[in-house]
Amino acid sequence: MLEIRNLHKKYGRFNAVNDLNLSIKEGEIFGFVGPNGAGKSTTMKIICGLLPATSGEVSVDGVDALRHNNKIKEKIGYMPDFFGVYDDLKVDEYLDFYASIYKIKEANKRKTISDLLELVDLGHKRDAYVDNLSRGMKQRLCLARSLIHNPRLLILDEPASGLDPRARVEMKAILKNLKDMGKTILISSHILSELAEMCTSIGVIDNGKIVISGTVSEIMQQIYSKKLIKIKVNDKLEEAVLILKEFPFIEKITTGENLIQAGFDGGDEDMSRVLNALVTRAIPVATFAQLDGNLEDVFMKVTKGGEER
């Protein structure tokens, strides 16, 4: 559905997007993760035709998006990371305005608007002025606007930014609905755990480049080639460390207060052998667990604290 090859965007000498490559299949939900200034919004704007690219190729549904920008506008629904609403219009009029732009026939317009307002749970606010909506409602209205022409590809730039936890949950539920409707979605967010739940694949962008991409499990595997185990003991910490060193598949042992953390390159049987050895030699084990890496760890690891650049 979306193919980006060797995309570059320069502002003077600054490379906002630097040789970016990306491929998103139809029906996929792709999470675009990266620190501020990494190039997420710039890439999204280039796809939507809101910024010219310096070089590279972008194709949407087989159409060259950089050369035939007008042909892809019907296929894309864009939601920026700001509200972009007319305060002096009513909710209904706001959607009606965009429906007119996309030349939706009068006969279908009413139904489309009603359906969209139901989808984003704003049916009861149809006659309210946009100015009187809460931030979360405005975000949802923006999402409804981006869907008014039934686009196949949705580009959502931080759709949950600045929302309270409840509004985030509501937004997440809507996105899940869209996923079920078969929309292809490119979504950027800093709320990485949420992306992990809803995205079929993720790309981490840093300094304008995709540094790692794939499904969540693939990324975890690439980053954490070895598992981590965490052992908490009530006593005999040094003795426990000596026992662990007897196993060749355990390495990089670090200790804290009654706490041991180590790299583990074995299977489940090896795991039980280690636990058995500790218990047999009377080590008072309080906790024995394998640590799961999370997306936040991945983010920090691959972007190397990109925020501090």
């Binding site: 704007k45 035709g49 809101l50 007008n70 506008k73 920026p80 509200f83 972009g84």
Partner: peptide, 13 residues
């Protein structure tokens, strides 16, 4: 200023 220009420009208008 209202940040609505981009929204208009990404339509087919």
């Amino acid at each position: 200023e209202r940040q609505t220009l981009d929204l208009l420009l990404c339509t087919n208008l």
